[in-house]
Amino acid sequence: MNLHNTSHLGRPGPEELVPSRYALRIGEIDVLVVSDGVLPLPTAMLAHNAAPAVRAAWLNDMFLPADAFDWALNVVVVRSGEQTILVDAGLGLDPELHLPRAGQLIKRLEAAGIDLGSVTDVVLTHMHMDHVGGLLADGVKEQLRPDLRIHVAAAEVKFWEAPDFSHVSMPPGFPDALRATAKRFRKEYQSQLCTFEDQHEIAPGVVVHRTGGHTPGHSVVRLASGGDRLTFAGDAVFAAGFEHPDWYNGFEHDPEEAARVRIRLLRELAETGGLLVATHLPFPSVGHVAADGDAFRWVPVFWDY
């Protein structure tokens, strides 16, 4: 299967009027960004350490609503050599969450012509429910290969044995939901977890690096082939983080360290010119980072189609 061609497979149904996948190549590596939908959250989640008036001004400048807006949910499928790698697994479909526009990954992979049984590896940037929930959706595990390898930082697995939520700023109910999902995920997939300490090469040109910050085991995935570079940053970068890299995301378990990780990553990308994709940047979330004084500027790529 050539992922570069899957953007032409299937057609949106009546309920899907916009594109939900975007294909590109990093040297000899095929990459497909797939939208898992959107997650509506209070705007205070963007920056709970910012003054409300400052946060409101940023939202106004971005033509965003003042009270709540839709956070994108993006995952990436990578084909390198003989391996097909799913980076993160989306939210899944949990009727108790009342999030009908999220959890779209499985049907969108099917629409793209990607058979779950062809996935050889899963890489988890971390174990929040919007990154592991797709693997817990009904009927998914039965479609996966019995020898599937799920790569995750050892520090992440350890953290979820007794997670610390003392520094987060989440809406009510989210900590309990996150704990429950991580516990269920560990129970379902414990035998297939392949843990690493700081970094691990998953396939030729595909390396996962632990950054910490957002969670203790939060990781980014770096692709490199033929002089091209792309970083899937997970939750290290979000929409407000370019102009305000010191703003704290409400889901960060160590917000001070998360800000340091974000600044280092954005500075590196601005210097190298490598492409960036992140979970919660607007789909398809492919672009460059430019330095802008002490902050940064997001430069989306021109779509290639």
Rank of each mutant, 00 (worst) to 15 (best):
D176S: 12
E201T: 11
G90H: 00
G241L: 07
H8T: 15
R210V: 06
V78P: 09
F238C: 13
A155D: 14
L64C: 02
R186M: 15
V289R: 07
A224Y: 08
V152N: 05
T215P: 07
S166Y: 05
V168D: 09
V277S: 12
M45W: 04
S35A: 04
D176K: 10
R25D: 15
L281P: 08
Q83V: 00
F165Y: 14
M129C: 12
A111K: 14
V54R: 14
A233K: 02
Y189E: 08
P14G: 12
A154R: 13
D61H: 04
T272W: 11
W160M: 03
F283A: 01
R145P: 02
N60E: 15
E252V: 00
D235W: 08
T215W: 05
L24K: 06
L265M: 11
L275Q: 05
D121H: 15
G13W: 13
L3S: 08
E110Y: 08
L9W: 14
E243V: 01
T195R: 10
G173M: 07
M129A: 14
V34W: 07
W160N: 05
G37F: 01
A102Y: 09
V261G: 03
A44Y: 04
V122T: 02
A180L: 11
G227C: 09
W58D: 06
I106N: 15
Q192Y: 06
H280M: 01
G293I: 01
G213A: 09
G217F: 08
H98G: 05
Q199E: 12
H167A: 15
F238M: 14
K107R: 14
P255D: 02
D246P: 01
G226V: 02
Q192K: 13
V277T: 13
G274F: 04
V152E: 03
P163E: 08
L136C: 10
P282E: 13
D304I: 05
E188V: 14
H244P: 04
N74S: 09
R79Q: 15
V157I: 10
A162Q: 13
D294M: 06
R297D: 01
E96Q: 11
H200N: 09
